[in-house]
Design a protein around this nucleic acid. Structure first.
Lengths: 246, 246
DNA sequence: TCGATGCTACGGCCCGCGCCGTAGCATTGC
DNA sequence: GCAATGCTACGGCGCGGGCCGTAGCATCGA
């Protein structure tokens, strides 16, 4: 209806405050954080953060799980992560257009989590290898697996059981650092989960960046011929912590 | 990195003002509008609109074409439209969660333009028929056409010439009213263009909604077996004009 | 040349809202 | 029970920014 013009503004307004944007950005790895942690990450006092979190809840962007005296906030769903990614594509373009064209944080563009799946060159690598191998087909709500694709997932230890849900098991998600699609959807999430379980991929502290271990590289290359995940020269710039407040 | 946290906030802030959101929303059909038209649509004075447009330009969300004493503003690119769509998915969910679950404006959810291609049940219908017919394959940056798919496009009068660009000819785009993907990309845009040329689809005044003519229905069904575009009962609610200001 | 039109620049008003201080409620641990 | 901790509710401060009026520049038409 165009009744959504104003609603659009409401949602964008929620994301448009620096403190709230920092919170949402911090939650994009799919984990749940406490109000205090989010306050610290956003660079505001807990009282202020509480107000922001209430607004985000009211707007349907966050979900909360209460455990004892802690309240764990997380993104309300994949659509929220996808909308944020869409904005980050623009924010990234903005960056490269008028700021430093320089490396976007070599670690993050190499490999990171995007809500519940992998992004960066790691995510692209998995996506491209599955495409090149003919393991994906176009399905109703996104991608599906061909029979060879099912074999790949089985070999990786992920059971590609079809779900009853209308939502597809796999779907493309535009990568804001590489500007090309990687894979999202619950099968991509299951694969990421498996990779963490097997220590094929490990998380880093205080960053959405992750590391592909040698074992992981071998396992992926083994089950998925053609898989590549190029590491860039990667000049270290360990100013991750402060950057959150910039 | 994470330098994009704040940038994310900047972009979202730009979209978060009601007047600017109305402008962006009005531009989502891909057309270029003058500053005065946008001021009127946004419900603000021309001076105010001028300031907003300058901000949107500065943020890289709009592009402008100067013709005589008119300045025609349009979205800067498909990424902007996609980011807006991502937000509208959330805004739509919001609507259905706490407002009327009711019909989202039957005309718009039936068929509309989304930047430069078709959305709504018309867009979904084209997408699903191509999927069901096995006319799409998963390509590097999105979808590609199988040989049978190329024949379908040729039959419709659209030359599916491959481009040198890295960006795929077709890619999925999540439909905010149906919450399922339709087709975007330059081939989808070319198809939409062709449909307007042949009067298979006609625009409506003052709305992004479009109408599939009988000739269009026949042409699509002929070239694309399995194509369906269900019309809903469609209770008329012609309050489109005012709704922009709501 | 002169008026009309489209658009932008500047200035002042004012409201919204982000901020934190204090205070209050729930939960945990001693 | 009592102190400590996590979180939220409320109130007042302060500023950013959205709004329009006036004014100025470019373009078009007669």
């Amino acid at each position: 209806m165009s009744t959504d013009g104003p609603y659009l503004a409401e949602i964008a307004h929620l994301m448009g405050d620096p403190a709230r944007a920092n919170m949402l950005h911090a939650l994009m790895d799919g984990r749940a954080l406490t109000a205090k942690e989010l306050a610290w990450l956003a660079g505001v006092a807990p009282q202020t953060a509480s107000g922001h979190l209430a607004k985000l809840m009211d707007g349907g962007l966050l979900a909360v799980a209460v455990q004892g005296r802690h309240r764990y906030y997380r993104l309300a769903g994949p659509e929220v992560a996808q909308a944020l990614e869409g904005l980050m594509v623009l924010a990234g373009a903005q960056t490269s257009r008028r700021r430093l064209p320089s490396r976007v944080g070599a670690e993050l563009s190499q490999a990171r989590t995007c809500y519940d799946h992998f992004a960066g060159r790691l995510g692209i690598g998995i996506h491209d290898a599955l495409v090149a191998g003919g393991h994906l087909r176009v399905a109703e709500g996104g991608y599906g697996l061909t029979s060879s694709g099912e074999a790949v997932f089985m070999a990786l230890g992920v059971d590609p059981v079809p779900t009853k849900s209308r939502r597809a098991a796999l779907r493309p998600c535009l990568d804001w650092s590489e500007r090309r699609p990687h894979l999202a959807g619950h099968l991509a999430a299951a694969l990421a989960c498996r990779c963490f379980e097997m220590a094929w991929v490990t998380r880093r502290k205080d960053s959405r960046a992750v590391t592909l271990t040698d074992a992981g590289r071998a396992a992926l290359a083994d089950a998925l011929p053609g898989f590549r995940c190029d590491a860039e020269p990667a000049a270290e710039m360990p100013e991750l912590r402060q950057a959150v407040f910039a």
